[in-house]
Design a protein around this nucleic acid. Sequence first.
DNA 1: CGCCAGCTTGAATCTACTCAAATCTTGTGG
DNA 2: CCACAAGATTTGAGTAGATTCAAGCTGGCG
Lengths: 237, 237
Amino acid sequence: MTRAVNRQHTPPALQRLDTLMPLDGPARAAVTGAIARVRLVEPDQELLSEGQAITHTLLIVDGWAARVRVFPDGRRQILSFLLPGDLIGHCRQDSPCSVSTVIALTEVAICVAPRPAISPALAEAYAISTALDEAYLLAHIARLGRLTAHERICDLLLELLDRFQLSGLADAWAFELPLTQEKLADVLGLTAVHINRMLQLLRKEGELTLKGRQLVLTDPRGLAEKIGHITARVYAC
Amino acid sequence: MTRAVNRQHTPPALQRLDTLMPLDGPARAAVTGAIARVRLVEPDQELLSEGQAITHTLLIVDGWAARVRVFPDGRRQILSFLLPGDLIGHCRQDSPCSVSTVIALTEVAICVAPRPAISPALAEAYAISTALDEAYLLAHIARLGRLTAHERICDLLLELLDRFQLSGLADAWAFELPLTQEKLADVLGLTAVHINRMLQLLRKEGELTLKGRQLVLTDPRGLAEKIGHITARVYAC
DNA sequence: CGCCAGCTTGAATCTACTCAAATCTTGTGG
DNA sequence: CCACAAGATTTGAGTAGATTCAAGCTGGCG
């Protein structure tokens, strides 16, 4: 269950928040405490359903979750990924409810996120996290609207690499990608068959290798340059 | 410049916020005062550019604006529309900066949005507005990812109808659509030529009429039923 | 060993794109 | 009030990228 890259003691979720905004003692203690009390969710289980009232903000500790929309005829679209260190349901409304269903893609560990009132640094980390979330949504819209299948895959993988780097779950080239080609298709608005063909092409081009769940990008920076990918992180100032 | 539907004195921007959350006296006064001091922006002018520091939250008073992303090779994608009563740059960060360029699509009137601290009702209206914004982004992702050209157009027009109804700028069937087919293409991830053909088809099917800038949907509720459109408004509780 | 989910392959099809030209609008100046 | 230019819409023909459907393959696991 331990991820390859993160051998140190800092849990990825804590590391992500700390990277977004250096946390003070109370914040670190609160997050560490929260992370100690996780709930495990099985793959394909719903974490939250559309329209459901939100009582706590949740924090992803481990695993992959996703916001999804399913159409009456069975088409499905993954709206966004939720990865370790990401918040679920963080908003300012009095009685908020979920705007989308959230499901676990792998086994997921979640906990209740400490209240931002505990520490100004924590509040700021949450705010930056929320801003980044929005940047990822906008990037996804541009991806689906204007990129080809080939570009979409590269662009998404570069975003994921970047996101995992924030939490220490990726080094400069590689991270664990536990998604089936069908799920990739559901994020990228394509079919599994076409994802398959494009992944083969990318391998033939030498852009990536995929052994088991381990994804390695040969030259992330060169690839980002080539397809004009700009990391959303730059927007969070 | 006065829009067809809104003959009463309530400005659309005020009406939208008041619809989201009934405003108290101070809030209404503050919004009315703010709306009195508008800045006019010409079509195609930038309201905000990517990465720029945000000093005030802005409120759209009149006209259409959009968040756009332009690729190095000239492809462009409209990420979201900003319509009367919508907020620009409302967030919780200490020193926020814009995650996308915002341009005026028509002549736009904007003002500085009153601070939410003025009134709890206003703060809640802003919070709901922000939540709705996110719901629109998610809806757009699902649209681009999984709907056909025909469905995308219908789905977008239904969303716009719904949004204009919030501010009193649309009745049950019609609103003013000042977009060229090229701009519609830029939102929907299609080409102008294809938008043209699909609009003709929709007219032939009797789903809509388009005289000048006036868009009339023949049977919005039936259409929404047919394509499985769910108004994002339901998510805001 | 055999099953099953996921991956791979091929052929036919279709949706949307490209390019190019014609027509319609709208606004402007003479 | 007409002529003209510029922008926007419309039309047609050919093409490309992605889908569909169907079959075969692979690897992990009971």
